[in-house]
Amino acid sequence: MARLDVKPTRMELSNLKDRLAISTRGHKLLKDKQDELMRQFITLIRKNNQLRDEVERELTEAMRAFVVAKSLLNESFIEELFAVPNTSVTLNIQEKNIMSVIVPEMNFSVDEDEKKSEMQYGLLNSNSELDDSIEKISKVLPKLLKLSEIEKTCQLMADEIEKTRRRVNALEYLKIPQLEETIHYIQMKLEENERANITRIMKVKDMG
């Protein structure tokens, strides 16, 4: 282990001791943070997995229904039906702080006035299977939006966990051992100097 390139003086020793104390405290705090982040991350990722499975299953089902519906209609007809969306969704993003990680909290609101309009698309160039698939897709939408929020949070937390882990490791395996070794070295050096001094004084005394 490399020792720090410092002069072995009492001043340095006191400085290094201070630094060691701070590092140890920092390490403990970071370790706690990492543990808590991990704990929250695991609950979140479980929820994420479950939601993702659900959304994927429902979406596959909806898409399958859509393909069947689509096969009976001209593609331009279908695209025309949905060329102009009749509802708009507003997204409000607020920031939430989980263990100093800024994660998004998304709120989706659908314009109530628009929701009231019953006519979503013309019935002439569509069919009942299309109705079913569109209904299925609209049902998945809120879950899909929720999933996007959770997945983004997981991603941000994973980054933070990674960063924290690197810091904890750096402190644990590099910084603290380095400081400890340097302190040890300076102490040894100072003691050695002390002994040399005593010996020198004894010799001077003998000469007299």
């Binding site: 001209n74 331009s76 007809f77 695209e79 025309e80 060329a83 102009v84 013309g122 002439l124 160039n125």
Partner: peptide, 22 residues
């Protein structure tokens, strides 16, 4: 009537929907 619908929506929303014309 499909084409008329496309063109009407185009007029109402100022979007380019020409590719949907048959």
């Amino acid at each position: 009537y499909h084409n008329a619908k496309v063109l009407l929506k185009q007029r109402f929303t100022d979007q380019d929907l020409e590719h949907l014309l048959v």
